[in-house]
Simulated scan of single mutants.
Amino acid sequence: MPFPRPTPSKAAPSVAPAFYRLREVSRISALSRSTIYRRIAEGRFPPPVTLGGRASGWAREALQAWIDDPEAYRFTPPS
């Protein structure tokens, strides 16, 4: 399943963002906030990255890896 793109507007070209915030991740994955964070703790969902200050988001590539095979996805932290 290809990665969903945001709805295009007339003012800006249709370009997928590099990072997605929790609201978009929840919509894309059809998972609730608590389920997302529970799966992160279990290593079954990609963790967010800090974008600066209190902001965090999910990298498009990490979400695509989960979308490609959610049942087999396992996060392994870099060593």
Rank of each mutant, 00 (worst) to 15 (best):
R33M: 05
E61W: 05
A11I: 09
E24C: 06
T7N: 13
R54P: 01
A12H: 13
E61Y: 06
I40N: 07
R39S: 02
S34N: 14
L31A: 07
R39E: 12
G57R: 14
R23N: 12
G57W: 14
T35I: 03
T35K: 09
T76L: 00
P77M: 00
S32R: 13
G57H: 15
A16F: 03
R27W: 11
Y73T: 04
E42H: 14
R39C: 02
G43C: 07
R39T: 01
D68H: 01
E24L: 06
R60C: 14
D69A: 12
P78L: 03
A59Y: 01
P47C: 06
R44M: 03
P2L: 01
R27D: 15
G43S: 08
T50C: 08
S14P: 10
W58C: 02
G43A: 07
P8S: 03
E71F: 02
I28M: 14
A12W: 08
P6N: 05
Y37W: 09
D69G: 07
P13N: 12
T76E: 01
T7W: 09
P70D: 06
D69T: 03
A59Q: 10
K10N: 10
S32G: 15
G57Y: 14
L51I: 05
R60M: 14
F3N: 09
G52Q: 10
G53D: 10
S56N: 14
D69E: 13
R38E: 13
P2G: 00
F75K: 01
Y73R: 06
R21G: 03
G53R: 09
V25G: 00
E71Y: 05
P13H: 10
P17Y: 04
R39L: 11
R39G: 00
S29F: 00
R23K: 15
R27M: 11
I40E: 08
W58Y: 10
F75V: 05
Q64L: 13
W58E: 04
P46G: 09
P47K: 02
L63S: 01
P6R: 02
A62F: 06
P8K: 05
E61H: 13
P2S: 07
P6D: 08
A11K: 11
A16Q: 12
F19R: 04
E71V: 00
P70L: 03
V49N: 09
P48I: 05
G43E: 09
I36W: 03
E61F: 06
L22E: 13
P77A: 04
P8V: 01
G43D: 09
P17H: 06
Y73W: 12
I28D: 08
S56I: 02
T50A: 11
R23I: 09
R5N: 11
S26R: 12
P48S: 09
P70N: 05
M1E: 03
G53W: 08
